Simulated assay, not measured.
Amino acid sequence: MKIVNVTESLAEQKLDEIIDSLGCCKCDQCRADIISYALNRLSPKYVSTDIGRAYVKLDTMSSQFEVDLLAALYEAAEKVKKNPRHH
Rank of each mutant, 00 (worst) to 15 (best):
S48M: 13
L42G: 03
I18Q: 05
L70P: 02
V67T: 15
A38N: 05
V80S: 00
E17I: 09
S48F: 12
K81P: 01
E8M: 04
A77G: 02
S21T: 14
L15H: 04
R31F: 00
P84R: 08
K2W: 01
S9C: 11
K26F: 08
L70S: 07
A71Q: 15
R31A: 00
T60M: 15
S36G: 12
N83A: 11
V47C: 09
T60H: 15
V56I: 15
L69V: 03
A54N: 14
K82Q: 06
Y46T: 08
V4Y: 00
S48A: 14
C24E: 02
V56C: 11
D28R: 05
G23C: 05
T49H: 11
E8G: 03
E12C: 07
A32M: 06
P84T: 07
A76N: 03
P44V: 08
V4R: 02
H87I: 12
C24M: 06
A38P: 07
F65V: 05
K82M: 08
C25R: 01
R85G: 05
S63W: 07
G52T: 12
A77S: 05
E66I: 09
V6L: 01
S9E: 14
K45V: 08
L22D: 02
Q64L: 14
H86A: 05
A76K: 00
K81R: 13
C30S: 02
S48Y: 11
P44H: 07
L42F: 10
L69C: 04
R85C: 07
D16F: 07
A38S: 11
I3V: 08
P44G: 07
K57C: 12
L73A: 01
N5D: 04
L22E: 03
D68S: 09
S62D: 06
S63R: 12
Y37T: 10
V80C: 00
L73I: 10
L70E: 04
L69K: 02
C25S: 03
D59A: 12
D16Q: 13
R41H: 15
V56K: 12
A32Y: 03
A38F: 03
E78L: 14
C25Q: 06
S63T: 13
A38T: 04
F65G: 02
K26I: 10
Q13R: 14
R53M: 15
E17V: 09
L22M: 09
A71V: 12
L69F: 06
E17W: 08
R85K: 14
H87D: 15
G52C: 10
E8W: 02
L15G: 03
D28Q: 10
Y74L: 10
C25D: 04
I34V: 10
P44W: 09
K45S: 10
D28V: 09
K81C: 05
C30V: 02
A54L: 15
N83R: 07
S21M: 13
C30F: 01
Y46H: 12
H87C: 12
C27Q: 00
T7A: 00
I35G: 01
A76H: 01
Y37C: 08
L15V: 05
Q29C: 06
K2Y: 01
H87N: 12
Q64V: 15
H87R: 11
L22P: 03
C24Y: 01
K81W: 03
V67R: 13
N40E: 15
N40M: 14
I19G: 03
Q29L: 13
